[in-house]
Design a protein around this nucleic acid. Structure first.
Lengths: 110, 110
DNA sequence: ACAAGCTATGTCAAATATGACATATACGCA
DNA sequence: TGCGTATATGTCATATTTGACATAGCTTGT
């Protein structure tokens, strides 16, 4: 790609890089999301096992029911920090967290 | 504790709860910090192994040298999200992350 | 049908995390 | 000594995350 085309694309809001870079970035992002989803599932499973409502979890965590729902659904507005704190707050052990992360599922291609 | 004293303490900015609650909270917080520190050590070790400077890591992560330094030192202003993304960004595998979390050290009492 | 409880989704002001920057310290080398 | 490189630490404007709230859907029981 010549630099004029690169400049045009970037002016239009595109990042320009190699295909390899793109794939690598996606791989990292996928791994990150997978881990987040693993924590989300962990939280949900633990909550069900303990027979707690989302509202009750919210109390224990110091948050709100709506945010707990977003946590369990893997909403992008939820941080790993909050997920981690929440799992611990309802009695999840670090060991359980590690197990959840270790057994994370691969995201299937669309 | 009678409710008058409780009210007085809370007015002065103190949370009132049981000792058990206090200990439990500290346990959760300790577990959380331990995991964060485990990731910080993981990032540092991986960076050294790859012979990268903090500045180079900053480029790969899309951050700055100073933030990378804070990450490795376990600075409280750094999120688990950023630590996780960073480890992955410099080529750490999810497996390595899990291993790091699994081998987290206990914080020793002061 | 209604009521009560649980969960999902959207919005928003306030709280927190962030990159960028300046600057300090330390180390090796010419 | 000075110079370049690497790392640490503080600050700050901005970007992202947060709890709170409203509200809707969905069950279950009466």
């Amino acid at each position: 790609m010549n630099s004029a085309k690169k400049a045009r694309l970037e002016a239009a809001g595109w990042k320009v890089g190699t295909v390899a870079e793109f794939l690598e970035l996606n791989k990292q992002e996928a791994a990150f999301v997978e881990m987040k989803l693993a924590l989300a599932r962990c939280l949900h499973a633990l909550r069900i096992r303990r027979k707690l409502s989302q509202s009750r979890v919210a109390e224990l965590v110091g948050s709100s029911q709506s945010r707990v729902a977003k946590m369990e659904s893997g909403d992008p507005s939820v941080s790993v920090d909050l997920l981690l704190r929440s799992v611990l707050a309802i009695g999840g052990s670090p060991t359980e967290v590690v197990r959840a992360l270790a057994s994370r599922k691969k995201l299937t291609p669309a």
